[in-house]
Amino acid sequence: MSTINAIRGLRRHRTQRTGPFQRFLGAPLVWLFVAFNVAVLAWLLLSSTKTTRDLIATPWSLPHAIQWDNFARAWSAGNFGPAALNSAVLVAGTAAATIAVAAPAGYALSRLGARSAEGMTSLFAIGLGIPAQAIFLPLYAVMNSLGLVDSLWGLGLLYTATSMPFAVFFLTGFFRSLPAELEEAAALDGATPWYTFWRIMLPLARSGLVTLLLLNVIGHWGETFFALVFIQSQSLQTLPLAMLGFLQQMQYSGADWGGMFAGIAIVVLPIVVLYIWLGRRIIEGMTLGSGK
């Protein structure tokens, strides 16, 4: 505290902030790190266009001839088409449902001043620490008794429910950081509490909601464990399950690394695109306490 005040007292004009260390050593290091990440993505994509032989023998070389066939094979042999559709519907539905349920809860817990709110929020936070493998067996019993095994509805409900700890925790924090003035003004204008929530607070929290949506989609797009346990019919399998099935074939029908990387690319690319498209929102959501 005192340091800061002391520094504050010395406040003068704008100065050069970067030292020589940062400019000549630091920045290159950061870009090296960044370049490594880009290289990994490029390597993943390049590998998906190589033959298995090339991929294993010379993992770092450029493809001799681009093997578009890899994608065709992964798509058809892995049955990716219907799986992609299932995944898209499931993930979109889950994200929407998560927000629909968590947003009111987050709002209520942060801004309604209920006595139990604090404890309730902590209770949700504890849920963050429960690993999926720890609860899947009893969960099977719950799902089974509700007739929700082997159903996309069931899996979607499960995803929504297991998203609750993070979603509520996140949105509680987010709503808490919104300015109170607008809400108070609305109250003075005679707005109903519901109207205040729906028309004022929710739009204010938009960037937080988008962030949550995106993180939720990223998280569930690749979810394998619950899908494996709770989906049995092929017609209902999700993209990660299709991918897993495709991988399992390799020991007996010949290692198909080209096809495997193509499959992985098919799974990863939509998320990369979504991330690039909405990625700024994540950062915005994290950074901003107040939406626009």
Partner: peptide, 30 residues
Amino acid sequence: MTASTVAASTADPAVGSPSESPAGARGHNA
């Protein structure tokens, strides 16, 4: 790629700033 482990881990970091951001917003909400 497994489980909500990832769901949670992918999602988690975002918790940080908005909820506990050091900026003045906290004063308001209290």
